[in-house]
Design a binder for these strands. Structure first.
Length: 599
DNA sequence: ATCACGCGGGG
DNA sequence: GTGTACGCGTGAT
């Protein structure tokens, strides 16, 4: 059978000792899980000497692996690698150190790329796009029973093919808890949930509570008899409304953990996952991320920290910044009093609860389009992408590009290397001319368009074309000011070529945008080009952070050195025409016109 | 200066 | 889960 579905998320499970990728997808109101058991984990080994010697050594040490010689590019140079394919990602992880320690092994590569991410990249499966799935509909898989869960399970028989990639109409639901906490911060063991606010982009506006407004007739409150019923009602709302994306504000750290604790205490099942599973908390560094299989949970707090630069990121502050409107505010430590006192105060608390959850929804509607575009460009799930730093987004984009370029990706800098790098002085950054005090009138403004990306492309700044040794013909190189780092003019470096490619894509989109007469399409194209711009601008940052794969302090220094040279040169040039810069920063300056005989 | 530590958001 | 945030301000040394 074949069926067009939208890919929402991905994971893998172990079935008969084999890793099986599961793609959580939707076809309208139908939940579909696609099963693919055809993909196997692998890593690359760089041999010390003859590949055969290395292959023999690996075969002696490891059972149940496929060992083969392959030619891949390493910093653009065709290189003999050995590809080692394992039966399971965990077996790969277990044998990494052993492989690294072998005498014929110089280096291991691509050993730390999560299995599901490798799957998406290598199979060109892009989350939040519509694809055609060809396979066999099966009644059950592992502990999944299709009828029982009300889903369809399709075992894939052919590679997925893209149908549509600019989908926008996802069903978004926001939620927010209010808690009765008279003794400081809420404690889930003692403090009950008193309200659950829900709002959606398909018209839902509701607060579930055990109390009601003074005038229940014209009320948005859904009154229930207990906290337990409150949670059950919330679960039903999620189940019944075919939700694609659930959003909250700080919901990774507060709402979902709290909800899960209370549900456990009250004996409520939170089995809202497409596979019948409950909310799970995935460790990400020191923080947890709340995950529901088949429903994408986006914590907007994390998104907003990347989306805009503010001194604080409270819901109120972010909302004010985005919409210029003050929200209703109830101080957290007084919520319990409003609840207990009832009357007008309780009415206000209900209004506050609804206001919060509606604000959260509005923020989602404002910011998710960009993140959907980034998801499709980067090629990793929205759940992951919304929790990545921009540098990580750029890195996973590059990992994908590297695969299709036949490049083996560099390892993350680490270990002893890391300490040395960290000790290095900070990169100088852009040129800043402190603004002159006073009120300036009749200023002219000058700035470079995407200065750093342009420099990376025009000077071919890339770790794979940097030359540290003596060179024969200096004319074959771009020489960075101040530091004299040498970059080959040919061939084009990996990162410059990737940036050139996406900026070209951006150019095409902007042209389409201008030509388009459809407002919705225009808007969507605009978001696409913004997403690309963000990614291109982040590439510079990739060079400057010591824990990224393409870290290169030399490249980072060369970019800013050229940047300073360009801006200073422009200021000087402007002076020749009688313009005097009163303030400059990195890629632009403000100047005023002065007559030649004036001071 | 340098370092270790802890915080953010949420109620 | 082929894993272990991050960047900044504070107060102590």
């Amino acid at each position: 059978m074949e069926r067009n579905v939208v890919i929402l998320d991905v994971d893998y499970v172990t079935h008969d000792d084999k890793p099986v990728v599961r793609l959580f997808a939707k076809d309208g109101e139908d939940n579909v899980i696609l099963i693919d058991d055809s993909f196997q984990p692998y890593l690359y080994v760089l041999p010390v000497g003859f590949p055969e010697d290395c292959i023999n050594e690996i075969n002696e040490e490891l059972d149940d692996v496929i060992v083969e010689e392959v030619v891949k590019k390493d910093f653009q140079v065709e290189t003999d690698f050995i590809k080692v394919t394992f039966k399971h990602p965990q077996i790969l992880a277990k044998n990494r150190d052993l492989l690294r320690g072998l005498s014929e092994v110089a280096e291991i590569r691509e050993f730390d790329i999560p299995f599901y991410r490798r799957y998406l990249i290598n199979n060109n499966v892009v989350p939040m796009t519509e694809v055609k799935a060809v396979g066999q509909s099966i009644p059950s898989f592992g502990n999944l029973e299709a009828d029982e869960l009300g889903i369809e399970i399709i075992k894939l028989e052919e590679p997925l093919t893209l149908v549509k990639d600019n989908l926008q109409d996802f069903r978004i639901l926001s939620f927010d808890l209010e808690v009765r906490n008279p003794h400081g911060m809420p404690n889930s063991e003692e403090d009950e949930i008193i309200m659950i606010g829900v709002a959606s982009n398909f018209g839902l506006r509701q607060v579930i509570s055990t109390k009601n407004k003074t005038n229940p007739k014209e009320s948005f409150v859904c009154q229930v008899s207990s906290e337990k019923e409150m949670i059950e009602t919330f679960v039903d709302i999620i189940r019944d409304n075919n939700v694609d994306i659930i959003v909250g504000y700080n919901s990774d750290n507060f709402d979902f953990p709290y909800l899960k604790d209370r549900a456990r205490i009250l004996g409520v099942d939170l089995d809202i996952g497409m596979d019948g599973s409950s909310i799970k908390f995935i460790r990400r560094g020191y923080a947890n991320a709340a995950n529901i299989k088949g429903i994408i949970h986006v914590d907007l707090y994390l998104v907003m920290r990347r989306y805009m630069t503010l001194d604080r990121y409270t819901l109120e502050r972010v909302y004010l910044e985005l919409f210029g409107v003050e929200k209703i505010d109830v101080p957290g430590e007084r919520i319990w009093e409003f609840w207990d006192n009832g009357g007008e105060e309780l009415d206000n608390l209900f209004d506050y609860s609804l206001d919060d959850v509606v604000a959260t929804l509005e923020i989602a509607e404002q910011t998710l389009p960009l993140n959907l575009e980034l998801t499709r460009i980067v090629g990793q799930p929205l759940f992951d992408l919304s929790r990545m730093a921009t540098g990580q987004q750029a890195e996973w984009f590059l990992v994908k590009e590297a695969y299709w370029d036949d490049e083996v990706v560099p390892n993350k800098p680490g270990g002893a290397n890391f300490a040395v790098r960290q000790a290095e002085e900070d990169n100088e950054g852009g040129y800043v001319k402190e603004p002159e005090k006073g009120l300036h009138e009749n200023l002219v403004q000058f700035d470079f368009r995407s200065l750093y990306p342009s420099i990376i492309i025009s000077k071919n700044i890339s770790p794979d074309v940097i030359e540290f040794g003596e060179v024969e013909n200096i004319g074959d190189y771009n020489i960075a000011p101040e530091h004299d780092f040498k970059f080959k003019k040919e061939p084009k470096g990996f990162i410059p070529s990737v940036i050139a490619k996406i900026l070209n894509e951006r150019f095409k989109i902007k042209k389409q945008m201008k030509a388009s007469t459809d407002e919705t399409e225009k808007k969507s194209l605009d978001v696409q080009q913004q997403a690309i711009k963000r990614l291109a601008n982040t590439m510079y940052g990739i060079y400057g952070f010591p824990r990224f794969r393409w870290y290169s302090f030399e490249c980072a220094k060369a970019i800013t050195a050229w940047g300073r040279q360009y801006i200073k040169k422009s200021i000087k040039e402007a002076e020749n025409f009688g313009f005097y810069a009163i303030y400059a920063d990195t890629d632009g300056f403000y100047a005023k016109y002065k007559k030649s005989n004036e001071e």
